[in-house]
């Protein structure tokens, strides 16, 4: 099962994958134990002539054991999950001073990417709008200001292990740091109409030098600005 996971390319993705494998092995072991017990019981206690069932009403000890065991497993799993979840989604735990800030806005059926430009402010003349193409440098903290212009969309980059719904008239912040250069798809993960299936953008993770060159191409006069 685990080998079907796409390659992870984000800094927090490894944590997600670790939890995924932990749950995978826990559930696999439980499944095997339960199924094996079931099959053994079905064979061993099948109806045989002259053999009667044994009258057993239950066992308080056993009930307490499996209630307690399940509760413990659940809480241990939860304990390991809280920090991981907060790392991905809680804005107060995002790495500060992002290297790149981009606004991503979903609309039927495209992703609009807006770069604030050298002044780092949205809504000014040096903004850059790109349709469906997101460019970021490798090993850099990227903050995404996520919104939508019509219905709910969901920003999903499988390789980043990142998914967040985009809501109209609201800005939701997410972050990531990509560790591998390449071109990755950004499908929409929330049903958004008849074009939902084909709605997708691309995340281009560049090496720093390539990214700098890309920035220089877009905003040439600011190349020496030292932002």
């Amino acid at each position: 099962m685990l080998r079907w996971l796409p390659e992870n390319i984000s800094t927090f993705g490894q944590g997600v994958d670790t939890l995924f494998s932990a749950i995978y092995y826990i559930t696999l072991i439980v499944l095997i134990l339960v199924m094996a017990t079931l099959i053994i019981f079905l064979i061993k206690y099948r109806h045989q002539e002259g053999k009667k069932a044994t009258y057993i009403e239950g066992s308080t000890t056993l009930e307490i054991i499996w209630t307690a065991a399940t509760t413990v497993i659940v809480f241990v799993l939860a304990m390991f999950s809280y920090p991981q979840w907060n790392k991905i989604k809680s804005p107060n735990q995002f790495p500060e001073n992002p290297d790149v800030v981009v606004q991503v806005s979903g609309k039927q059926f495209n992703w609009d990417m807006t770069y604030p430009g050298p002044d780092n402010e949205f809504g000014t003349d040096d903004d850059l709008d790109l349709e469906n193409e997101l460019h970021v440098p490798r090993n850099a903290v990227v903050h995404i200001r996520l919104t939508s212009q019509d219905v709910i969309h969901s920003f999903f980059v499988p390789q980043l292990r990142l998914k967040q719904d985009a809501l109209p008239n609201r800005f939701i912040n997410v972050w990531f740091e990509a560790t591998k250069a390449g071109r990755y798809e950004i499908p929409c993960a929330e049903l958004c109409g008849f074009g939902h299936s084909e709605m997708r953008g691309y995340l281009n993770v560049h090496e720093q030098t390539d990214y700098d060159a890309w920035v220089q191409e877009r905003w040439p006069q600011e190349a020496e600005g030292g932002q």
């Binding site: 099948r46 044994t54 239950g58 659940v74 799993l77």
Partner: peptide
């Protein structure tokens, strides 16, 4: 995740019901 607890109780009880029974298929 707490729902796993009553669900597990039920599953184990069904298994316990079959234990030392005389199962008709």
């Amino acid at each position: 995740m707490l729902i796993a607890v009553p669900s597990a109780i039920k599953t184990f009880n069904w298994l316990g019901t079959m234990f030392r029974g005389s199962i008709r298929f």
